[in-house]
Amino acid sequence: MALLEVTDLRTYFRTDDGIVKAVDGVSFSIEKGKTLGIVGESGSGKSVTCLTIMGLNSKRTTITSGEALWKGKNLLTMGAREFRDIRGSEIAMIFQDPMTSLNPVHKVGKQLTEAIQLHRDVTKSQARARALELLKAVGIPRPERRIDDYPHQFSGGMRQRVMIAMALVNNPDLLIADEPTTALDVTTQAQILTLMQKLQEEFGSAILVITHDLGVVAEVADEVVVMYAAQVVEKGPVERIFKRPHMPYTWGLLGSLPRLDSVVDRLVQIPGSPPSLLNPPRGCRFHPRCPYVMDVCKADDPALLPVFDDSDHFAACHLDHETKDREAAKLIAGMMAQAS
């Protein structure tokens, strides 16, 4: 049984302008100790997917359906108390912006021990010892001095380390990281990614990492889910997605990968911008931006189907598979040529 099994997840927000279908039929699963990457442009519903799994959407304005089975139990229908015991202990989450994710009026030590004491029956000093241990593990220099500092006394990278420490403090089975490196500079990004991988080996947690950067996925993920306009358009093991991507949107994302040797403007390869989720296009949601668009794309929404000879790899596209194989091969060859 998968650790987390999400099936046909839908999250709709009631707003003054109408219903925003921020997540519209998303399915994926995560195995114990593995890393799943969700990738897609900003506004494709990645964050809302995570927040829904964590039960962190405002109840008043949200309509949720589908299933998110955690060790066999549906999180979406779980009682508040039971969910609270899982949140922060079995499933932990870190967020995009470390500058605003820590409470400015509490010492970081207090914020860590709070996380411990919410789930474990330990004394203050035991909690503090555990907090220190974690601050050391995430590479904060002189943790016994820094533990009584306030968040504003840390740099962005250090704050994200504190967030990671806080998330791992109860040995979660799953760590959800929503764009953990987006707000950081390039050097710090690499450090945080390396740290996450090292800690995954140490703690054995599964990781759900969200990013708009396929480079991050290539580095850390075992499985990839590509999201576009609130839906999954392609998913599969990471090496298949990178060797033989089967969806023009993924090609666009791959084409916009920043390369080490050249500074390319990101996302310049996909013209246009993602559609509004208030009123997404009919048919394939990517068709207005797709260079391969056919008549059928404007009328019918393609189903997410296994690639003909690879039952682990799914894609949602009306193109015939010869064309997809040909175009994918061209793209990969081009990338290789550029890299060498």
Partner: peptide, 14 residues
């Protein structure tokens, strides 16, 4: 609506 409030909830705080 602050991020740190969401963090607190994510920790499992009542």
């Amino acid at each position: 609506n602050e991020d740190y409030v969401r963090t607190a909830r994510a920790k499992g705080a009542p």
